[in-house]
Design a protein around this nucleic acid. Structure first.
Lengths: 144, 144
DNA sequence: TATGATTTTGAAAATCACTATCAAGATAGC
DNA sequence: GCTATCTTGATAGTGATTTTCAAAATCATA
């Protein structure tokens, strides 16, 4: 049972909201979890379509929204205007290092940066809530 | 002559690209520079319209693109999906602290964070190019 | 300061990513 | 199984941005 915990979280969320555990929802979660990549709604749509050719775009978006609500997924609005979705469960807070050539994503955390970010926010009299940080560069493979 | 330098930069950019220095372009730059705020295309459009009621949306977008190209303006794609534009000339690199209640923007820089970001990128074998960091919180005025 | 090649304009249509609508179908408590 | 309720896919509708295009403006040259 590879995604037992995630499936349980989703089922539980649907139950508490009086929503139904449809075939499509099951399948979309499963396919989403099996792709270890930050994907766009369209990429997920095309992948799901291979198995369920009649699935609609709206169902993909609706299910992604549910997955975000129950904490299995995070939506990322990137600099270039695209929106990508990443697995959230089991991943602690992190930021991203992105290769500007090949688009590779690396999850990074630096506790010292986190600490300084919080300090900076407080220095300006703000109550800190969250942040986002994206670092862009050229990765080893693309550099040479 | 309040925006002499900026106007010169724009004129020079247009000249090198064999583009024309139209009334609309002059006026949009002038109005943009006089609003000291991170504004949306629509906000700029409405402000320009008060003086030039026939100006089209497309001209606003086309001119903003030119201003970004010549380094007078920066486009910010925010977390909530909106796009805002800020003055760039004369402002050194900075990140943003944004109030989640009133939307207030504060420009911030922390040299120590900058240093650690670069270090982090290099640790992963990347050649650092740029980054973006947005800090979200509740400002003093909105907190009470 | 007229000419004419080239660019720019505003209006409207097109595009893009995403959301809402709705009738038909699926789910699940009884 | 029945039935209330939710979900679905298709389609239309958004809202922001871009493209298209014919008319108007710019500007180097005559």
């Amino acid at each position: 049972m590879p995604w037992e915990k995630e499936e349980k979280i989703f089922e539980e969320y649907l139950r508490t909201k009086n929503l139904k555990h449809s075939e499509q929802r099951k399948e979309i979660l499963y396919i989403f979890l099996n792709i270890d990549k930050h994907l766009t709604a369209n990429e997920l749509y095309r992948t799901v379509q291979r198995k369920y050719p009649t699935v609609g775009y709206a169902t993909i978006y609706r299910t992604l929204k549910l997955l975000c609500e129950c904490g299995l997924c995070r939506e990322l609005k990137l600099e270039d205007g695209t929106t990508r979705y990443e697995h959230l469960y089991g991943h602690q807070h992190h930021d991203h290092l992105i290769c500007t050539k090949c688009g590779r994503f690396i999850e990074v955390v630096d506790p010292e940066i986190e600490r300084l970010q919080e300090k900076l926010v407080k220095q300006h009299g703000f109550y800190p809530e969250r942040h986002r940080m994206e670092l862009y560069g050229v990765c080893k493979r693309c550099k040479k």
